[in-house]
Computed example of a mutant assay.
Amino acid sequence: MNYKIITFLIFFISILTVAQEKEYTEIELSIPTNSVTINGTLLTPNSSEKNPLVIIIPGSGPTDRDGNNAMMKNNSLKFLAETLSAKNIATYRYDKSALSYSKEAIEKIDTLTFNTFIYEAKSVINYFKKTEKYSKIIVAGHSQGSLVGMIASQNKADGFISLEGAGRSLDKILVEQIELQAPFLKEETQKIVTELKKGNTVDEFNPMLISLFNKQIQPFLISWIEYNPQEEIAKLAIPILIINGSKDIQAKVIDAELLHKAAPNSKLFIIENMNHIFKEIKGDLNENMQSYNDSKLPIMQNFSDKISTFVKDLK
Rank of each mutant, 00 (worst) to 15 (best):
L99A: 03
P58A: 14
R65F: 09
Y119T: 14
N51Y: 10
G40V: 02
L80F: 07
G61Y: 13
N69A: 10
A81S: 15
N46T: 10
P58H: 14
L99K: 04
K129M: 11
L99V: 04
L53P: 01
F79H: 15
G40M: 08
L84V: 12
D110I: 03
R93G: 03
I109Y: 11
S85H: 12
G59K: 04
G40C: 06
T41Y: 03
T111E: 14
I109N: 03
I57Y: 02
L80I: 09
I57F: 03
T63A: 05
T41E: 11
S60I: 00
D110W: 08
E104L: 15
L84G: 05
A121W: 02
L80E: 03
L84T: 07
A90H: 01
T41M: 13
F114D: 05
L112S: 05
K108I: 02
P62W: 15
E107Q: 13
I109T: 10
T113F: 11
D66E: 09
T113G: 09
L42Y: 15
I118R: 00
D66H: 10
T113Q: 05
L43R: 12
G67T: 03
G61P: 02
A105H: 08
K129C: 08
D95C: 04
D64I: 03
Y101M: 06
E107N: 14
Y94N: 01
F114K: 02
E107M: 07
A81P: 00
L112M: 14
K50F: 00
N88V: 00
I89Y: 02
L99E: 08
N74W: 03
L53C: 01
A121S: 14
D95G: 02
A86D: 15
K130H: 13
N115I: 09
S47D: 14
T44E: 08
Y127C: 09
N46F: 04
L84P: 04
N75S: 02
D110R: 12
K78R: 15
I125G: 05
L112Q: 11
Y94R: 04
K129E: 14
Y101W: 15
G59L: 09
P62T: 06
D95M: 06
I56V: 15
K87G: 06
D64C: 05
N51L: 13
N75F: 08
F128Q: 03
N74M: 08
M71N: 12
F117Y: 15
P52D: 12
T111P: 00
P52W: 07
F128N: 05
N88T: 00
E82T: 11
Y94L: 07
N74Y: 07
R93T: 02
P52K: 01
A70M: 06
N51F: 01
N46Q: 12
Y127I: 01
G59Q: 06
S85N: 11
V124C: 08
L42T: 09
S76P: 00
N46W: 09
